[in-house]
Structures are given as structure tokens and as C-alpha cells.
């Protein structure tokens, strides 16, 4: 019995310590920092941190650009996440349908963009969008994809490009896990490929779709690398374009207390959204 406790300590303690130091402690510290404010004695006086209650949060909630940026990523997510996951689902179903030859090739080809880090993907597409360097000048010389009207969707395309294959693989592997017997009844009933996909496959891979949606929601709210890179290509991307850019530029001022409050609000919003999504889909699944 003593051996068991020794072993448990050995297995769990290293992770637990790191988790406490680099996950729990920062969360606690961010909350603490967000409750403080910097006071100066006179304009050039020494700055001291004093308890400020919810002063930073008042600033967060009255900060127009921050809420605009939240609205922007929400709009981005409402359009981009369904498009990306819809494509991933269609490709996964096609791979699984037996109608496509060269499955191994497609699986790999679609997955390759996932190997490109967000920053590098954004740099690459930044060139592809630029009016004079792009190979698609027929498009880019007529429509400025980097203008204020289009740049959000230009970024949505970068994110879609990187993540469709990854999401496709997650959905595809859970399609592969469906036992063959499930299809036999459908075959006997004479259901075609479309019918089978719609009424058997999609319901059965719902857990995978829910999981990828939650990860996509989290990723969308955290959007940073793409807008940070696009700032060099497009003046339409401001320093508060997405919530995380706001956190970064606020901490660069530096105003750590306000930046911490932004971080806390953003993390809470993310948790609430993904949690709410999980709850809603679970309720739907019980019926």
C-alpha cells in the first residue's frame, strides 16, 4: 500500500507542481493584478500600486475598442467556424464514402497546411493577397483584399486554410470508428450515400464535431498571430483589432493592471462561450 502512494506521488506530483505554477498561479495573479491600480504623486512622482477594487473592470467595460474587437472576433467566428467545419465534414464524408480514389494522398495533402505555423501562414497569405506580388493579380488588382472591408475575411481564409485538414482528420477518424454493421440496415433499406451520410454518419460523429467546434471557438477568441502579422500588410488592422492584440498593446504601454483585467474578461468570456456551447449540444443529444 505504501508503494502505491509513493508511485502516485511520483506520477502526479511533477505535473501537478508545473500545473500549479504555470496555470493556476498565473490565473490567480492576473485576477489580483486586475484589482490594483497605479497611483502617482504628481505628474512625475513615484508610481505605487494600490488596491483599486473594480476600477480596471470599469475601464474594461467602458472601453469601446475592446468591445468592438470582441464583436469583430464573434462575427469572424459565426462565419468562419461553420464554413471551416462544414468543409471539414464534407471532405471527411467524401473520403469515407468510397467515391474518392487516392484517399491517402488527399488526407495528407489537406493536412499539410496544419504543419505551417500561424505566423508563417499569415506571412505567406499576406504576400498572396498583396496587389502587386500576388500570383492572383486578376483578383488582387481589382479587389483590395487587405482593405478595411475585406481584411477580416482575408484572415478568416488563412485560419480556414490551416485548420480544415486537421478538423477533417478528427471527424474522419471517428467516421472510421463506426462499426460496419450500422450501415447494413441502411443498405437493406436501400438508402443511398447521401441519405446514409445525413441520417447515420453525421449523428454518429456529432461528438467529434462538438469537440472541434469548442476548440475553434476558443481559437477564434484568441486570434492573434494573423492580425499581428497583417498589421504590416494592411493599415486597416489596428493595434486593438482583436482582444488579444488589445491585451498585448495595453501591456506594451505598459499598463499591466488594465491588461490583466482584459485578460481575465477574455478568458472568462471564452470559458463561458465554450461551456454554454457544450451544454446546449449535450441537451440536444439527450433527446
Amino acid at each position: 500500500m505504501r508503494g502505491k502512494w509513493k508511485a502516485l506521488t511520483f506520477f502526479i506530483l511533477p505535473f501537478a507542481l508545473l500545473f500549479a505554477a504555470f496555470y493556476l498561479a498565473p490565473i490567480g495573479y492576473a485576477i489580483k493584478q486586475s484589482l490594483y491600480k497605479v497611483e502617482r504623486q504628481g505628474t512625475f512622482g513615484k508610481a505605487t500600486e494600490v488596491f483599486g477594487g473594480l476600477a480596471q473592470y470599469e475601464r474594461v467595460f467602458s472601453d469601446g475598442p475592446f468591445w468592438e474587437s470582441i464583436g469583430r472576433v464573434l462575427l469572424f467566428g459565426i462565419v468562419q467556424v461553420p464554413v471551416m467545419l462544414g468543409l471539414a465534414l464534407i471532405f471527411a464524408l467524401l473520403l469515407d464514402s468510397g467515391l474518392v480514389k487516392g484517399r491517402r494522398f488527399f488526407r495528407l495533402a489537406f493536412f499539410v497546411p496544419y504543419a505551417v505555423p500561424g505566423v508563417v501562414a499569415a506571412i505567406m497569405w499576406g504576400f498572396l493577397y498583396s496587389p502587386n506580388l500576388s500570383p492572383f493579380t486578376a483578383v488582387t488588382s481589382n479587389v483590395d483584399l487587405l482593405s478595411a472591408d475585406f481584411v477580416l475575411w482575408a484572415m478568416a481564409n488563412v485560419v480556414t486554410w490551416v485548420y480544415v485538414g486537421y478538423n477533417m482528420l478528427i471527424i474522419y477518424s471517428s467516421l472510421l470508428a463506426i462499426p460496419q454493421e450500422v450501415y447494413e440496415a441502411a443498405k437493406i433499406d436501400g438508402a443511398g450515400a447521401l441519405r446514409t451520410a445525413w441520417s447515420i454518419k453525421i449523428p454518429l460523429v456529432m461528438p467529434a464535431i462538438v469537440l472541434t467546434t469548442v476548440f475553434s471557438i476558443i481559437g477564434t477568441l484568441q486570434l492573434l498571430a494573423e492580425p499581428a502579422v497583417f498589421r504590416t500588410f494592411s493599415s486597416a488592422v489596428t493595434s486593438t483589432y482583436t482582444p488579444n492584440l488589445t491585451v498585448y498593446s495595453t501591456s506594451a504601454i505598459p499598463n499591466f493592471n488594465l491588461a490583466a483585467a482584459f485578460s481575465v474578461v477574455l478568458a472568462l468570456a471564452t470559458c463561458v462561450l465554450s461551456f454554454a456551447f457544450l451544454k446546449v449540444t449535450q441537451r440536444g443529444g439527450d433527446k
Partner: peptide
């Protein structure tokens, strides 16, 4: 498990301060 839902980017700034 709830750590999975905490976005890693939210930790970056407090980690810097620590």
C-alpha cells in the same frame, strides 16, 4: 480538465508578470 478551456494566451501576460 477545466485547464483545457483556459486559453493559453490568457496566461501569457500574468506569466510575464510572475
Amino acid at each position: 480538465l477545466s485547464g483545457v478551456l483556459v486559453p493559453a494566451t490568457a496566461l501569457a501576460l500574468p506569466l510575464f508578470l510572475i
